[in-house]
């Protein structure tokens, strides 16, 4: 990936999207990289559409504004595809990662992705229900995002999830999330 990677997350309030962006930033610190993670703050309601952003760069990050031309777009809730234009500003070689049980080919058509753009899908909600018992798709989405982008290794991300979740949650929830990250990483499909 290039010197500066800009990521836009699309989710709904309560799905852990902002947490996912924060964990990703922390994991990307390795190798002396500079990181940013920030949500778009609005009226914070469960279920309302929200955006969050990451920047990862080998150079010091000075920009303090939303990501307008994302190279990576992570859609945590596929119902947003009918509500907003998730492709807005996407670079010509953008990578889309969508939480859906549908095949990547179907999503490619729906997103009207160009041949240079990559489309990945992962059934993150089902994985989350299997591993955590709740429809919290953020952990499997993290696994899928790092597989699709190669930003950090799976081992590194798992370490970081352990660290971030370890402060707040029980061992059972941590183990469930680690398994969810791993499955997201393994089950994401490109098409």
């Amino acid at each position: 990936m290039s010197e500066l990677v800009e990521i836009r997350w699309h989710g709904r309030g309560g799905q852990g999207t902002v947490t996912a962006a924060k964990v990703l930033a922390d994991a990307c610190l390795s190798g002396g990289r500079y990181v940013q993670a920030f949500p778009e703050y609005g009226p914070e309601r469960a279920g309302a559409p929200l955006r969050a952003y990451n920047r990862v760069s080998s150079k010091e990050l000075r920009l303090h504004c939303p990501v307008l031309k994302p190279q990576v777009i992570s859609v945590v809730d596929a119902t947003l595809l009918d509500a907003i234009d998730v492709t807005e500003g996407a670079t010509e070689d953008a990578i889309f990662i969508v939480n859906t049980s549908k095949k990547p080919e179907e999503l490619r058509a729906k997103l009207k992705a160009t041949p240079k753009q990559k489309v990945f899908t992962v059934d993150a909600t089902t994985i989350a229900i299997d591993c955590i018992g709740r429809a919290l798709p953020n952990s499997p989405m993290l696994g899928a995002v790092i597989k699709a982008t190669g930003l950090v290794s799976l081992e590194h991300l798992l370490e970081d999830v352990k660290k971030s979740f370890g402060k707040k949650f029980s061992q059972k929830i941590i183990d469930g999330n680690l398994e969810a990250v791993r499955r997201g990483y393994e089950e994401v499909k490109e098409g």
Binding site: K22, A25, Y34, V35, Q36, F38, P39, Y41, L61, H64
Partner: peptide
């Protein structure tokens, strides 16, 4: 928010 709530290195 821009600084208080954003994560940075």
């Amino acid at each position: 928010f821009i600084i208080s709530h954003s994560i940075e290195t």
